[in-house]
Design a protein around this nucleic acid. Sequence first.
RNA 1: GUGGUUUUAGCUCAGUUGGUUAGAGCGCCUGAUUGUGGUUCAGGAGGUCAUGGGUUCGAGACCCAUAUCCCACCCCA
Length: 467
Amino acid sequence: MANIKPSVPKGTRDFSPSEMVKRNYIFDTIKSVFRKYGYQEIQTPSMENLSTLTGKYGDEGDKLIFKMLNSGDFWADPESKKQKSADFTYTSKSLLPLISEKALRYDLTVPFARYVVMHQNEISFPFKRFQVQPVWRADRPQKGRYREFYQCDADVVGSESLLNEAEFVLIYKEALSLLGLKDFTIKINNRKILSGIAEIIGKPELIVDMTVAIDKLDKIGIEGVTKELLERGFSEQDIDQLKPVILLQGSTEDKLSALKKVLSTSTIGLKGIAEIESIIDYLKKLTACSLDELSLFFELDITLARGLNYYTGAIFEVKTNEAAMGSIGGGGRYDDLTGMFGLKGLTGAGISFGADRIYDVLEELNLFPAGTSSTTEVLITNFDEQAEQYALPIIKALRDQNIAAELYPSAAKLKKQMSYADDKHIPYVVLIGSDEMLSGKLTLKNMQLGTQELLTKEELIAKLKKA
RNA sequence: GUGGUUUUAGCUCAGUUGGUUAGAGCGCCUGAUUGUGGUUCAGGAGGUCAUGGGUUCGAGACCCAUAUCCCACCCCA
């Protein structure tokens, strides 16, 4: 067999022990906050039926779904299909459903909606679940963008209450603060406000084009947005109407009162504003903070658009202001995601943390807590067969006391065994040779100080239990 | 999907206008130390120069294609 150079697929990575310690720290922190707010964990399969995923993320999203080739002789089917319909032509699109029926999950929200519909009889609503699993996107990798990455989602279905949205803000705030981030912004907007704006300027059908364009405001400026709006079918007159809205400045109160005037004739727009106000009211009482105090990390942003494919109410996006990174979290309310799977009238809302981006940010800011690398507390060296036999009951006794202990598995040179302990940052080494076996006193070496002492088995256990 | 960029030892990287046997640091192995790591000293192993073509008397270097890294766009966590 040819010598194949080992590699992993584009955009994927291995995680070594030291990285896993840090990754688990992020996962555990976020999970603990989810639990604190009453969310329960589930998992779903890595792959879903392709039909479950397609059409939920828009055209761009569909392209980025990793499809899996059918097993077996998948080619036999297109051939017979072709015979059945004379006008069948071979294109990537026409062929796809015939050769692929499974795909890797693209996010955790759509599989969750599928889960809820399938398990509706065993679920008691409102159902609050969290899920921490990898998702896959066939994107081209770049900074903060991987083809395989973890999302940490919390979603609630079966509750219209805006209390949920308010609590999402608190979950973001609490988890990111626990992770050591100091300066971040949780942006909120409402799809209904965007609909209202599109309605006012008389182009409700162009809402997606409008939001995609204005979402780029902070990146390409008002000139860029104007240009893009013109390309997307808006007139100069429309843009003149739009400009004052998207350029709204000032406090959240100012923005809201200005928006109320602009949207005074739009029922849906006013509803969106009322929702934002209600969320703010909840937040004030849940935090005992004023709106000004909340504004340190919470901001109404009319230009925030996000995935409009299933969001219908509030939308969230979280950015850190301490590092150059795209959003580290996002979410929103979706009123009919389960409807696509046949369960109507069930509303849902949720948020997601991008664990890999958070990892990159914490690494850049040096925010990982130190000294959590090794788990082994003590290594027993292995001199020879006789010493190994002597060590076995000792290692049992240590482990019985819940002390992480390992016996070096071969009688390698002591130098090699000591280096092993050193590399692995094991704080203690026990040496058992003929002297020790004769006297019953074991040599315990403190690897950090370099000191040694002779201890009985009982003394050893007592000492390591304390340490 | 579009554009730019990177690829030389296990890792990070030098390598002159195309010219003999491709180097360094770190890591690894051996010894100084047959029962002691992290420091020091001496020695050693390790390369299809990403892959496949091409130009040339001669290619790590120049050209083309592919893969890959990173970055930007689209879009997104």
